[in-house]
Design a protein around this nucleic acid. Structure first.
Length: 296
DNA sequence: CCTTGAACCTGGGCGC
DNA sequence: TGCGCCCAGGTTCAAG
């Protein structure tokens, strides 16, 4: 599911419950997700109080009182949900889950918060997600963070920066925007939506948005604004709920109702006065949705 | 260096 | 009902 707005929605959903809570037990129901769990994961986490929840790009950060941070990535299908009370019956009955979906509950944070017991459960059918554990002070050295581009939130992303990154590149905008080294947190949905908002087609070479003397063309200014806006709008809407993805409280985000092109092949383009139809093409194995009439 | 394609894994939807 | 195929929000690594 998760691009930046979805992970931020997860963070906001979990924070009220997890911040200040104590992890009474970390339950790992298998030995790995995409990667093996950290060595002595449970041992290093059990009994710790959660100080705060943060986020970097698509990574959720869980800061513990002992100075360690759990880094969690939700891959394609990861989600968290909160359940009240202590664990119910049949612990460890992995081979006879109560529901079909329950067999993909891979990590369970058993928490004590204000005298109440509750569980935060990580579910991930495809297991492209993973968890890492490292000292808070060493986070900058985490391989995936070292070369990460700026967040598309607030004002940390600007057109001058993008013109430096795009200058001379023949790579299509689609790929350039998905590259986390350029901008952190965009995925397939929001790249398609940002390109539509800025009337740029996904096949357009990134370098053509930069002038001969290395300055951003007006089109690149428009793209920068569109990226910031679409991410802000999606966060405000609680992210997008597609297929299996739901929020931590079981409710749905609603930005999917605001999609202009993503997953809308064959429908009318909603740009005012545009008579185009949304098309789907495949770039590097991923679907791109765009309007051939108003995106150039 | 740059770009593409396959791989990782499970499940849902569709055509037959 | 079942089978085979295609598709899915991400990242990484090999190969051209």
């Amino acid at each position: 599911m998760p691009e930046l707005p979805e992970v931020e929605t997860v963070r906001r959903g979990l924070a009220p419950v997890m911040e200040g809570a104590r992890i009474t037990r970390l339950e790992l129901r298998r030995g790995d997700l995409r990667f093996p769990f950290p060595v002595d994961f449970s041992v290093r986490v059990d009994g710790q109080t959660i100080v705060s929840l943060g986020r970097r790009a698509k990574y959720l950060l869980i800061d513990l009182a002992n100075g360690l941070t759990i880094i969690a990535h939700l891959g394609m299908s990861g989600s968290f949900r909160i359940e009240e009370g202590a664990a119910v019956d049949v612990p460890g009955d992995f081979h006879h889950p109560r529901s079909k979906d329950e067999k993909h509950d891979h990590v369970i944070f058993h928490l004590a918060a204000a005298g109440r017991a509750l569980r935060v459960i990580y579910n991930d059918p495809r297991r492209f997600g993973f968890m890492e554990l490292m000292a808070r002070n060493d986070l900058d050295t985490y391989a995936a963070f070292r070369e990460l581009g700026p967040e598309p939130t607030g004002n940390s992303l600007d057109a001058d920066y993008l013109s430096r990154r795009f200058e001379g590149k023949s790579q299509p905008l689609k790929g350039a925007l998905l590259d986390q080294k350029n901008i952190a947190g965009l995925g397939n949905i929001y790249v398609c939506e940002a390109l539509w908002r800025s009337h740029l087609k996904p096949q357009r070479a990134a370098g053509t948005l930069v002038t001969a003397d290395g300055k951003p063309k007006p089109e690149l200014l428009a793209l920068t604004t569109a990226i910031r806006d679409v991410i802000a709008d999606a966060i405000a809407a609680g992210g997008s709920s597609l297929r299996d993805h739901i929020r931590t409280d079981g409710s749905l985000g609603y930005f999917q109702h605001s999609f202009s092109v993503y997953d809308r092949e064959g429908t009318a383009c909603s740009t005012p006065d545009c008579a185009g139809t949304v098309a789907r093409i495949v770039q590097s194995g991923r679907s791109s949705f765009y309007c051939d009439r108003c995106q150039h």
